[in-house]
């Protein structure tokens, strides 16, 4: 596990990145759409810090946090949101399509559940080549109702593949509450149908997520197959920009704000005697500095060359 300070920094990097993105959209600086992960930072950082350097991560449409958690570069992320040549996908992917294979981040995905079979295939290849690696796929409670979820878990369970299915259950698929979309109230119980353990953890508790993913990873590397991990969490922001959040109450949001994952992490550090005001200030200052740097980098970067627009469709 990374140092406590490093973990705390990543939580803050995600929080400030996402706040800045919402702010830039609200001001009309950024165009298109985006899905932010404010409130879900602990699941991303907890899961990614339990992985090895050669493991791979597949992400979702709400993927900024996962990429930062895996060690992605906020400068290249912000440049992608700004549609610049220096962005992760050279302005071709936008908010929902960023990847950094050099750190084992194989891409966010604009299709709900789209990463699930990709992770299964990666795990299939790892096993075939006898490589000690796992694939981890983030997905949401909404994706658990996709056919791809059921097919992918079935194949992974059938073939006992080294893949971790990490569900961030934030309670809503866009505006639809989980209870109005899933015949059973929990996602984790669906694992029973596919011959793998299903565990539920408090997704706002970084250490709980870390422990669950670490155990699932050890199990996968022992050849015992996949695990479905359900992280109960909440997105404190709207689904995407321009979401009036009419499907939930402000009281519910306030209740979850009291369970803010950053606050939880800080409380845990305090309890362990590893926190002081100076650390708090230093971490926040460092995160703010890096986000400001990312915005400067993005603004300074050129737009992609139109001459090259039609290039690179094929090898």
């Amino acid at each position: 596990m990374r140092s406590r300070r490093e973990l705390y920094l990543r939580l803050w990097l995600i929080r400030l990145f996402e706040q800045k993105v919402e702010n830039l959209f609200a001001k009309g600086v950024l165009h298109g759409t985006t899905h932010t992960a404010i409130g879900q930072e602990a699941a991303a950082v907890g899961a990614c810090s339990a992985l090895g350097p050669r493991d791979v991560v597949l992400s979702t449409h709400r993927g900024h946090g996962h990429l930062i958690a895996r060690g992605g570069d906020p400068c290249r992320m912000m440049a992608e949101l700004f549609g610049r040549e220096t962005g992760y996908s050279r302005g071709r992917g936008g908010s929902q399509m960023m990847a950094d294979p050099s750190i084992g981040f194989w891409g966010s995905n604009g299709i709900t559940g789209g990463g699930l079979p990709i992770a299964v295939g990666a795990a299939l290849a790892f096993r075939l080549r006898k490589e000690r690696r796992v694939a981890l796929c983030f997905f949401g409670d909404g994706a658990a109702n996709q056919g791809m979820f059921h097919e992918s878990l079935n194949m992974a369970g059938l073939w006992k593949l080294p893949v971790l299915f990490l569900c961030e259950n934030n309670g809503y698929a866009m505006s639809t509450p989980t209870a109005a979309a899933s015949a059973v109230p929990a996602i984790a119980v669906k694992a029973a149908a596919y011959g793998m353990p299903g565990v539920t953890v408090d997704g706002n508790d970084l250490f709980a997520v870390f422990r669950a993913v670490s155990e699932a990873r050890r199990r996968a590397l022992r050849g015992e197959g996949p695990t479905l991990i359900e992280c109960r969490t909440y997105r404190l922001s709207g689904h995407s920009r321009g979401d009036p959040r009419s499907y939930r109450t402000r009281a519910e949001e306030a209740a979850w704000r009291r369970r803010d994952p950053l606050r939880r992490f800080r409380a845990e550090l305090k309890r362990q005697g590893e926190w002081d005001e100076a650390t708090e200030r230093a971490v926040r200052r460092e995160a703010a500095r890096r986000i400001a740097e990312a915005i400067r980098y993005a603004r300074r970067s050129p737009f992609p060359d139109h001459e090259a627009m039609e290039k690179g469709v094929f090898a």
């Binding site: 079979p117 299964v120 295939g121 990666a122 795990a123 791809m148 097919e151 992918s152 194949m155």
Partner: peptide, 14 residues
């Protein structure tokens, strides 16, 4: 849907 997706994942893995 998923074995085609898995094939893509395997292709990405080499």
């Amino acid at each position: 849907m998923s074995f085609t997706g898995a094939a893509i994942g395997a292709a990405l893995a080499g």
